[in-house]
Amino acid sequence: MRGVVLLFLLSLWPGGQVDAINQEVLANVVQEMRRFGLVGQQYAMAVILTQDQCNQNQVKFDLNTEEIQNTLNGNNIYTGDWLIAATPLKTPLYTEHAEYRLLSRGKTKISPMETLINKAGHNAGQCIVFFSTYSPCLEKCNGPDGGRYNIIPLMNVFQGFDNNRKAFVFSSVWDPSRNHPGVTNPSRQWVLESFKRIDGHLPVYRCDRFKENNKWVNRCYRCVTANTNPDTNDCLYGY
């Protein structure tokens, strides 16, 4: 699959053994992906890559940018052969977050994510990347106590991929007080624990532009690592 949502590339040891996700390549891919998203809006995407695409240093998406963006602007789910994408669906009664829309079966018997993976057929060496502009919120998508719109139980769909061929990536940590003044944000420790819940199904990364030595650079960080200190974990930078 080509499309929207992050693709991520893998680095190989001699002999073809997968070591880990190449985070520099992943950072470049995120920049490529952003050409297809909606500027200033929240969205989620997922993409499946062939084995060859997983091992390339550079990948360009051969996609119709206007078609994808028009679909998202219309509050519809984009469902390509190798890419799916969605924005939050807001109604007078409820809001379905973008990640949930891709993972949920809703009124159908199969979710967009299941359809995507089934089309791919679990061919050897394929990679899958699930991207969201924001980390899944603790109020709804990733709370410790579950709930109707919690995405954690829906992530079993990724079991067919080993940890070196799948990734969940976000750009910014969700800040509840941004849209709801007066709300007390969850602690950094609670947010870090929320990353761990996702990481139980697929490795979590944060990819964004960070300021280093007075210069802005594209970087990706593994969120659940040996560094369990919420005050210094790179994925919580700026929160």
Rank of each mutant, 00 (worst) to 15 (best):
A124L: 11
I152D: 03
E193S: 10
N156Q: 14
F170H: 04
V25F: 12
Y94E: 10
N75F: 14
Y237A: 14
I21V: 15
T65N: 06
V4W: 01
I84Q: 11
D208L: 02
P136R: 06
P112R: 09
P92D: 10
L192E: 03
Q56C: 07
S135D: 03
L103M: 11
V169S: 09
C235H: 04
R219S: 03
F170I: 00
Q31R: 10
L93P: 00
I84R: 09
N233D: 04
S104N: 15
Q69E: 08
N164P: 00
V47N: 15
K90S: 13
I117F: 03
Q17K: 12
T50P: 09
A44F: 04
A27S: 13
S135F: 12
Q17M: 11
W13F: 14
Y134T: 13
S177R: 11
P112Q: 12
E212G: 00
R222Q: 14
A98G: 06
I77H: 05
T232R: 07
D81N: 14
K211I: 04
D81Y: 08
V5T: 10
R2I: 15
N123T: 11
K166A: 06
A98C: 14
I198E: 07
N164R: 13
Y239T: 11
R222I: 03
A167S: 05
G15T: 14
E114I: 02
L103P: 01
N218M: 08
F210C: 08
L116V: 11
L26S: 07
N233M: 09
N118E: 15
R178H: 09
N75R: 14
V29T: 05
Y100K: 09
F170R: 02
A27I: 02
V204H: 08
V30C: 06
G3E: 05
D19M: 14
G74H: 07
L103I: 10
A20F: 11
E66P: 00
I117T: 03
F170L: 01
L12K: 14
L138A: 04
L6K: 03
L7C: 12
V183N: 10
A86R: 05
D208H: 13
S111N: 05
N233P: 02
L26N: 01
Q58C: 00
